Amino acid sequence: MTTTILFWRRLDVEGLERLELTVTPDAILADSSVICLEAGGFRLDHRWRLSPEWRALSVRVERWGPEGHHALALERTGAGWRVGGAARPDLDGAEEPDVSVTPFCNTFPIRRTPQAPGASLTLDTAFIDGAALTVARSRQRYDRQGPGRLRYVDLGLSAGFQADLVVDSRGLVVAYEHLFERIAPPT
């Protein structure tokens, strides 16, 4: 079992995330808190359970803000998803969840994007809007630019948005153009 602590700073608004990632032979678990001044200021916790192949099995998102506390649970059911225990046929075939306020979930498709420069991976996601705690289907593409470098292209809800990503050897985001950068706490 290995546990890693990661921190990301938001670049577009004031915000910080702390994520604890635990990898065991049977599962990958992530437990994270995001504090952000966006949308009146909020705290958002997200807890993930992944397969050893880095496929999301479930995520629970809780948000505290000016409008109170709200929670959302998303769970894989074969090729589909349940949201709050209810089947969501509109999400059938969506390959992974994507939570708007964290770069962590980009890791899942990044790890599956072929390594050859110029290679691409296009997928549908179950996009979770962190401010509204809503889930909608969206489409994304990851273009491999070279070792540890990709371009994210939104083809769905934010069509036209693009950002260059720098990732480490595990596919975890180090820099996400315009939005996030990984930081280390002072020693």
Rank of each mutant, 00 (worst) to 15 (best):
G160R: 05
D98T: 00
V101Y: 05
D129N: 15
V135H: 12
D98Q: 06
G130M: 01
V166L: 10
D143K: 02
V174Y: 06
D168R: 12
I110Y: 03
P114Y: 06
D92C: 01
G171Q: 11
C105N: 12
A131H: 07
V101T: 07
G85S: 12
G148Q: 08
L157F: 05
A94N: 03
P97L: 08
R137M: 14
R170C: 10
L155P: 04
G156H: 02
G156K: 05
A131E: 12
T102D: 03
G93N: 05
R170V: 00
G160T: 06
T122E: 07
P114R: 05
I128Q: 10
A94I: 08
V99S: 08
A132Q: 10
L172D: 02
P117G: 06
Q145R: 11
L165Y: 13
S158W: 00
G156E: 05
D154Y: 04
I128L: 13
F127M: 13
A87Y: 00
L157A: 12
L133K: 03
V101K: 00
G130E: 02
G130Q: 05
R112P: 11
V101H: 07
R144Q: 11
R137G: 15
G85P: 13
V153Y: 06
T102A: 07
D143P: 00
Q115N: 11
T107E: 11
N106W: 08
P147D: 06
I128W: 09
G146A: 13
V173W: 01
L150W: 02
T102E: 07
F108I: 09
L165D: 14
F108M: 11
G93E: 03
T113P: 00
L121K: 08
R141T: 04
P114C: 09
S169N: 12
L172H: 03
P114A: 06
A86V: 02
V135F: 11
D90H: 01
D92I: 05
Q162N: 03
G146F: 10
L121D: 11
P117M: 03
T113W: 00
V153G: 07
R149L: 14
R144E: 09
T107S: 14
A132E: 15
A131T: 13
G146E: 08
Y142L: 08
V173S: 05
A119K: 09
L123T: 14
L123P: 14
T113E: 00
P89T: 01
I110G: 04
A159Y: 03
L150T: 07
R151D: 06
G85E: 09
L155D: 02
G171T: 05
E177K: 07
I110T: 07
D92A: 04
P89N: 01
L133Q: 12
L91H: 08
R151Y: 01
G148S: 02
R137T: 11
L165I: 15
I110M: 02
A159N: 12
L157P: 03
A163F: 11
L121A: 10
R111F: 00
Y152T: 06
V174L: 13
D164L: 01
A136I: 03
Q115R: 07
Q140N: 03
L157H: 14
T102Q: 05
P103G: 02
V174C: 12
P89A: 01
I128A: 10
L150Y: 15
S169T: 15
Q140C: 01
A126R: 06
Q145M: 09
S158I: 02
T134A: 11
R137S: 13
T113M: 00
Y142D: 04
L150S: 13
